[in-house]
Computed example of a mutant assay.
Amino acid sequence: MKAIVCSSFGPPSNLEFKDVPDPIPADDEILIKVHACGINFPDTLIIQGLYQFKPEFPFSPSGDIAGVVEAVGSAVKHLKVGDTVIAMTTYGGMAEKAVAKASVTFPKPPGMPMVNAASFMIAYGTSYHALVDRAELKEGETLLVLGASGGVGLSAVEIGKHLGAHVIAAASTAEKLALCEKHGADEFINYTEVNLKEKVKELTNGKGVDVIYDPVGGDFSEQALRAIAWKGRHLVVGFAAGSIPKIPLNLALLKGCSIVGVFWGSFAQRNPKKNMQNTMDLLQLFTKGILKPHIHKIYSLEEGPQALVDMMERKVKGKAVVSIV
């Protein structure tokens, strides 16, 4: 099969388009003929050896896939050959075929395009787990979304609105904020033009925000935390800015707030039943038209490395997707 292959850690230019052996599913795995795979920020870290774990070489990036079941392991009962599915694989998805654990592979809803399905699992799974399970976001609360025009950011805007929150979108350009408005955000902050803390305080009449959704990190994390409300929850989702902030812990004391870690991949492995219910809820919301993934661009398999470059250069609004079939 054809695949984009990482044989040594480094930039996307190190990746190769080549023939590799077909993967073989274990008893609890499914072999999927991949139709499309989504690009997420962790993919740019994995190929550089900067993620929480380092796969064995060679491997293919992308852990967000949609396709058709080609074979199932002996322990798999809920899916069969020929089913169309979405799955989370962590890595291995930028290839014509990939294996996924049965516990994180789900039937694709009828009518859901493959490119939408491939852009769904990680972004929406992360945001739903963050806002529902970790923050327990309530109707009427205020939600600040940093990096709001990205894949996880837009999903957080949509889910926050569905849960009844007042959503403040923060991003780096007017164009990105316009996209956030289309996805339901109520108010907007261009944090390249104004002080994030001061603007949040202004928009909330000095109260601060109840929940901060933070996939950005860097200097913006502390600015946002300084504008959190009493008993607020700061969700640590990722570090797209490139640096892990060192937060003064006295802020948590003074604000009576919580700094809450969000690691959806680990949650999905540790609590597969709850993750399955979350995923079913999300797929129903998509079917009802409440959730609408924004596709920034569709790339060919050979163009997969360029999709990663565009992600690293912050050119992607919503989701970048590689179409393989």
Rank of each mutant, 00 (worst) to 15 (best):
K2N: 14
A3N: 02
P12V: 01
D22Q: 15
I24W: 07
D27I: 09
H35F: 06
F41L: 07
P42I: 08
D43Y: 10
L45I: 01
Y51C: 07
F59I: 00
A66Y: 13
A71F: 07
S74D: 05
S74W: 00
A75W: 02
V85A: 03
A98R: 10
V99S: 01
K101E: 04
A102C: 03
P109K: 15
P110C: 03
G111Y: 12
M121G: 08
I122Y: 03
V132W: 06
E136N: 15
G140M: 11
E141V: 01
V157K: 07
V157G: 12
I159R: 03
G164N: 08
I168P: 11
A169I: 06
S172H: 07
A174L: 02
L179N: 06
G184Q: 08
T192A: 04
E193M: 03
V194N: 05
V200Q: 05
N205P: 05
P215W: 01
D219Y: 04
Q223K: 13
L225S: 11
W230Y: 09
L235C: 07
V237F: 00
V237R: 07
A240D: 10
A241H: 05
G242F: 06
I244K: 15
P248I: 02
K255A: 07
V260E: 11
V262S: 01
G265M: 05
A268V: 14
Q269C: 04
Q269Y: 07
R270F: 02
R270N: 11
N271T: 14
M276V: 07
D281K: 06
L285K: 13
G289M: 02
I290F: 09
P293V: 11
H296Q: 09
S300I: 00
S300N: 06
L301Y: 09
E303S: 03
G304H: 00
Q306E: 12
Q306H: 00
Q306F: 00
M312Y: 07
R314L: 08
G318I: 03
K319E: 03
S323Y: 11
I324W: 08
V325M: 09
